[in-house]
Write a protein that binds this DNA or RNA. Structure first.
Lengths: 162, 162
DNA sequence: CTGTCTATCATTAGCGC
DNA sequence: TGCGCTAATGATAGACA
């Protein structure tokens, strides 16, 4: 019954693989939790296994979204440095889209506050993680903005006509 | 010199914390690599530490982006299943907030499309359930809208001046 | 299929360079 | 600061319930 050294290769036996996965997964999470406590770092992990119907998101959906959004929002220099994906996954798409918004935001002070706050709401918080407060804020801003624009257009029109 | 049980709390000594982090980080990555080899799962991790200038992205940027995008793009069913509003409070609040936007939308045809699509995005999907596609759409609409408004203002201003 | 047990391997804290 | 070393804790494969 001497324990053998573990063979580091794919486990072909299905139930053995499941068991190993289950046990090691918990071990891994424990370790991860430990390093986070000991060193106060910000981290997250996502795992898709063939066994669980849903992805395992560690340490929580909330934290994962926070970390992902931080990762996505890194400075342009840092972003460029790690643009390794030629096909254009998520990050590039986000970058591209956000560049347009940022550009417009800089160009147009009229809408600065609205765009900025929406930007913060959408990206600062992470995806799928909007609170009621955020939505409220966004809605108010949209309303305000629509009203202001309307007033300004009316003003200009009046000046033009009279 | 008996080794003590490790106290699972934040290590206040700076260099000790760095050392522990470095060692445990490599241990964690090894374990993660092992479970991936043994069980053939798809996973990624992102860590922000105060020590490394850049985030540690495991196992690679490419894999991380792939996994993140898979996570973000899960089917609506899967997303819905996981994002439950336990209080039942969300929908009411949303309705109330959205009414304001709808009102403005009706008042102001200039911004109809943008508001409508945002309305759909926010209301139709529910909170915290936005996909990357939605965000993209919303961002595009904001950009477009800002551009159009700007052009219209410029046009009116030109007409006024000349 | 999941949990418990335990002998064994694996990780790592503390120390000295 | 970051190695190498080593003893002690920690993780876990395999057996069993």
């Amino acid at each position: 019954m001497t324990r053998e050294k573990v063979n580091l290769a794919y486990i072909s036996n299905d139930s053995a693989r499941r068991t190993t996965f289950r046990i090691r997964k918990s071990g891994l999470m424990k370790k991860a939790q430990e390093i986070m406590t000991l060193c106060e770092i910000e981290a997250c992990a996502i795992m898709f296994s063939a066994y669980d119907p849903e992805p395992i998101v560690w340490p929580s959906e909330l934290q994962a979204q926070h970390v992902i959004s931080r990762y996505m929002n890194m400075s342009p220099l840092e972003q460029t440095k790690r643009l390794v994906d030629p096909k254009g996954f998520t990050r590039q798409m986000l970058e591209k889209t956000m560049k347009k918004v940022t550009k417009k935001r800089k160009e147009n002070n009229e809408h600065n506050q609205m765009t900025q706050v929406m930007y913060q709401c959408l990206y600062g918080r992470g995806f799928g993680n909007l609170t009621i407060g955020d939505l409220n804020k966004m809605s108010d801003l949209i309303s305000q903005n629509l009203g202001e624009t309307e007033r300004r257009l009316e003003f200009l029109q009046r000046r033009h006509n009279g």
